[in-house]
Every structure is written in C-alpha cells, then in structure tokens.
Design a binder for these strands. Structure first.
Ligand SMILES: [Mn+2]
Ligand SMILES: [Mn+2]
Ligand SMILES: [Mn+2]
Ligand SMILES: [Mn+2]
Lengths: 151, 151
DNA sequence: GCAGATTGTTAGCCTTGTCTAACATTTCGC
DNA sequence: GCGAAATGTTAGACAAGGCTAACAATCTGC
C-alpha cells in the first residue's frame, strides 16, 4: 500500500511546506481578481475589431449579464486605466487596455489551440479555455504552445 | 493575410453565436463560485488524513488568510451542508463534504500529474493546478488523465 | 420631426470574501 | 493548577460583482 504511486504523490503533496502552499493559494486569488478585467478588455478589443465599436449592450449579451452590471464593471475598468468612456458613447481601450487585450487574446488562443490539439471538441474547448486561460503561468503557456505546434 | 491560420481561428471565435459565448461565461462564473468551497473541503480532508483533525488555524496558515476569514468561510460551508462545526472544536466533513473532497482531490491529482507529464517543474505545476482544476470539464479531465498515463 | 423602441444610467439591494480590532476560550509549561 | 501563549470568535468595515426598478437619452421608421 505504501508503494502505491498514488500514496507517494499524496504524501508528497501533504508534506509541502504550508507557506509554499499559502503562496500558491494567494497566487490563485490574485489571478482571480484580474479575470473579469481580462475578459472584458479581450471582448472589447474583439468587438472593436469585428463591429467597429464596443457598446455596452453587446458586452452584456456576450458576457451573459445585465446592463447595469456591465456599467458598473466598465466604471471600474475606467478607474483602473484600461478604458475610457463617456456617457452614452461606445467604449475605447487605453494604451494599457490594448496591451492587456493583446496579451489576453494571445494567451486565450494558445490555450484553445492546445485543448483542440488534445482532441477536445470545439465547444468544450472554448468553455474550458475561457476559465483556464487566467490560471496558466508563462511556463505552462510555453509548454502548451509547443505541444499544440508539434502535434 | 486571410489565409493566415491565425486569422481563420480569430474569425471563427468572432463569429460564435453571442448566446453560446454567454453560456460559456456563465459556466465560468458558476465554477468560480465553487472554487473556495472546493479548496476548503479538499484541504480539510487532507488535514484530517495527515494530522487527525482539521483546525481553523491550520486552514488559515495553508490558505494564506486570516483566522476570521476562515471562520466566516467555515460558517458558509456549514450552512451549505459540507461540514459540521462546534465552537472551539475542530471541523468535520459531512457525507456530502467527503464526497466533494474526494472528487476534488481526484481532479487535482489528475491535473497535477498532467502538468508534470508535460514537463513542468513541481512548484509551478502545483500552483497552476490549484487554479486550473476548477475550470476543467469532465471531457478535458479524461484527456488529461489519458495523456498523463500514456506518457 | 415625432413616437416608440432601444440603449444606457442611476439608485439601491444582496452575497461573497477579505481585513482589523477586540474579546473569549483552550492549551501548555512549569 | 495557574498564568501566559495560542487559538477561536465576534463585530464591523470595505470592495467586487451580481441583480431589479426606475428613469434618461438616443436612434429609427414613418
Ligand atoms: Mn476568460
Ligand atoms: Mn478569453
Ligand atoms: Mn484549487
Ligand atoms: Mn486543489
């Protein structure tokens, strides 16, 4: 029983230093705080590219939330310097917002291509990529990219 | 330029139905709402296994949060039927809590083994697994498992 | 160019998840 | 077995992110 490789793995994870583990959880919480901003700027960039402009109503439809939720979130993004916005007008990305959007789109595509190359169907791949993308380190992203290109 | 495979992928993701996309985001938000409960019950199960009991102070250390945060979270877990708890005593999992913990540990280990089998270092693998595990569908999990076993 | 439809905003409510400060209980060393 | 240390709880603050209801502005079709 103690030679079962599962036992070994389990024991190893049990024995990790509590501090190291706390750091991991803190990292996950930090990533979670950026998820919404990342998805918004990525979507805004995409709407600007495909529709010429980004309107709150289109963001609301695609995010699956109500209009007031979008309004409040956009106010936070403006406060954080990612977008500019004027009453009743469409949304613009700042330089910083464009940079983040580009990075997010890049990462999203790598994760998506990786999942597809593993053999996952397109719809599930899109759903999983939408969540996974925010929790992938640079190192993991590099491995995903290499794998997708190789196969 | 329009034959660039990246353009094609981008166009494809642009053209997905807004409703399908909204469903994906709603799914991600639902997953996010369960993350904390999943990490807590998984950790509680582990502490019970390795230390004989699960105490708030050990949870706080490993989660990297303060004791009052743990207390409030444990109250929510009790309310939701995942644990039982009495003042100043250690924490017990309910039947439902044990079932969830088992499922989470299983999923965590598959994601971890998968990342390791891709060639990731142990520490980064642990960190990324801690975030990714909550956003992996059954199908993706099956593919991860198969890949880790094959390689 | 106006009426109705669409879009956007504001106000206010709720839950979650984090914190600090203060206090209560339990445990440990001697 | 007592006092100090460790552990746990309670109260209360705050930000994020969701909602509904009500109202305001803009756009569109005739
Ligand atoms: Mn996403
Ligand atoms: Mn994305
Ligand atoms: Mn986790
Ligand atoms: Mn986990």
């Amino acid at each position: 029983m103690h030679d079962d490789p599962h036992e070994v793995l389990h024991a190893a994870s049990d024995d990790r230093s509590p501090d190291l583990r706390a750091e991991a959880f803190q990292g996950v919480r930090a990533a979670r705080r950026n998820e919404l901003a990342e998805d918004y700027v990525e979507l805004i960039a995409e709407l600007i590219h495909s529709h010429g402009e980004a309107r709150p109503v289109d963001i609301a439809t695609r995010m699956g939330v109500t209009a007031p939720t979008v309004a409040k979130t956009l106010d936070r993004l403006a406060r954080d310097g990612l977008i500019t916005r004027a009453k009743y007008r469409s949304i613009f990305l700042t330089e910083q917002g464009r940079a983040l959007a580009k990075e997010c789109r890049h990462r999203h595509e790598i994760v998506l291509r990786f999942l597809l190359s593993l053999g996952l169907d397109a719809e599930t791949a899109e759903r999983d990529a939408e969540g996974i993308e925010h929790h992938v380190s640079e190192r993991t992203l590099a491995l995903f990219s290499a794998f997708a290109n190789r196969s």
